[in-house]
Nucleic acid binder design. Structure first.
Length: 419
DNA sequence: TCTGGGGTCCTAGGACCC
DNA sequence: TCTGGGGTCCTAGGACCC
């Protein structure tokens, strides 16, 4: 049996956890740039606030019902996530960290116990010890456990656990789940399935798996198997190495000139390069892109992208920034209202990769020394104490974060501020 | 006026190899 | 006059996830 442990309204719950006055109060969390809704407390859901709606569409409603809104605080959510996952490991030795607020766990070895009792106890303790309520669904496959989790959230809120452990429960769960709510089936595929008269998870479970593969893909074929209790998406207990590290952000206001966007790009590149080094990788390539506002019906649209190969796989920020800005020069064109710029480090390898380049001599050892010292200085004195001049200081492109809460768990200075 | 960010996997087709 | 078959790797684009 496989369990999925999922935090309820994770970002909203994190905010409520550190501000007791928010308990029982409708709370929403905004996307970066304070653009759209990405998390809602139960109270906010009950007032009809939908997921992913732009803020300007619900501003009135928020004012009317005094709904509290917060800018996303990923430092806080990331740290809370770490804490919750370490608690989970007390109860389940085999864990796959699936996302910031979800973990798959193996229930192997629990079969001689009262499974429901054990999982319910674990659920209560994870919720109480972290301050973030969680729900647990258990079934014989990942896809079915996701279904069980939905049922735990919707119908068994008080205990927060649901286990699909016989065929009767499985079929009932399938019949009460619309195809569009199925894990692995998105908007496009569910629309296509509807044309074949398939509307519920149960309908899909009855199709021939080869038909699913032929007409759709091996992904849907696996889903069909999983719905029938045949597990084909295994628990991944060893986290696979990252393949890419990316950063893109919308500007606080539209940009038209090259220089501020190059500055933003340099800053994002510095961030991904830091992340790269923290994980012990070097990047073999780098991709840069630009984008206009795809929601606009009148603005001219432009979404260029350029990928290049590093002369030698590297984690050296000055080189990566130089490469990124050169790439931006290739795709930048005057006359557009730009909404975002992004950078992705690709072809990641471990930093002992040792790939050389016959036609480029480089001072890898010197670079390693320099960047190690810069990282240390910045760690002790604050991010960007030493920075590339290209990163600038004005940051007029910076995203909006008008209602950001303190980084309660990771920054002492923030804790003092709220006193 | 105002609409997020960071990822993965799969597939088809082209280029290339012997 | 007539010119193969079996395979891999890479890339772009699509779809999905949270």
């Amino acid at each position: 049996m496989i369990g999925i442990i999922d935090c309820n309204n994770f970002y909203a719950s994190c905010e409520q956890n550190f501000m007791p006055s928010l308990n029982g109060v409708p709370v929403v969390v905004f996307s970066n740039n304070d653009g759209a809704i990405i998390a809602r407390s139960e109270e906010a859901k009950a007032l009809g606030i939908d997921m992913a709606v732009p803020i300007f569409e619900v501003k009135k409603l928020m004012k009317q019902y005094n709904i509290k809104g917060f800018s996303s605080n990923y430092t806080l959510y990331g740290d809370m996530s770490k804490r919750i996952k370490s608690i989970i490991r007390n109860f389940f030795p085999e864990v796959e960290d699936y996302s910031i607020d979800e973990s798959f766990v193996s229930c192997k070895g629990l079969k001689y116990r009262d499974l429901l009792g054990y999982v319910t106890d674990a659920r209560d303790k994870i919720s109480n010890w972290s301050g973030v309520p969680v729900s647990i669904g258990v079934a014989s496959t990942k896809t079915l456990s996701k279904l069980a989790n939905r049922i735990a959230k919707k119908r068994y809120r008080d205990i927060g656990v649901y286990i699909i452990d016989n065929d009767e429960k499985r079929i009932e769960a399938l019949k009460s789940t619309e195809i569009k709510d199925l894990w692995g089936v998105g908007r496009r595929i569910s629309a296509r399935l509807n044309k074949f008269g398939i509307f519920t998870a149960y309908d899909l479970s009855l199709v021939d798996s080869d038909w699913a593969k032929k007409n759709f893909s091996v992904v849907l074929q696996r889903t069909v198997y999983e719905l029938n209790g045949i597990s084909c998406i295994p628990l991944e207990l060893i986290e696979p190495a990252k393949q890419n590290i990316a950063s893109q952000k919308s500007f606080g206001k539209f940009q038209t000139d090259f220089e501020p966007m190059a500055e933003a790009l340099a800053n994002y590149t510095a961030r991904v390069a830091e992340k790269l080094r923290r994980q012990g990788f070097v990047a073999g390539g780098i991709t840069v892109w630009l984008g206009t506002n795809n929601f606009s019906k009148t603005d001219a649209q432009y979404f260029p992208e350029v990928s290049t190969v590093c002369s030698v796989p590297t984690d050296y920020t000055p080189y990566l920034i130089k490469r990124a800005v050169e790439s931006l020069k290739l795709i930048y064109k005057k006359g557009y209202l730009y909404k975002r710029v992004g950078v992705m480090l690709t072809d990641l390898r471990t930093n002992d990769d040792g790939t050389q380049n016959l036609f480029h001599s480089n001072n890898r050892n010197k670079e390693i020394e320099i960047i190690k010292r810069i990282d240390r200085i910045n760690r002790l004195n604050g991010r960007d104490t030493i920075r590339s001049a290209q990163q600038g200081f004005n940051h007029e492109w910076k995203m909006r974060q008008e209602t950001l809460t303190p980084k309660y768990t990771t920054r002492l200075s923030d804790i003092i501020i709220i006193k």
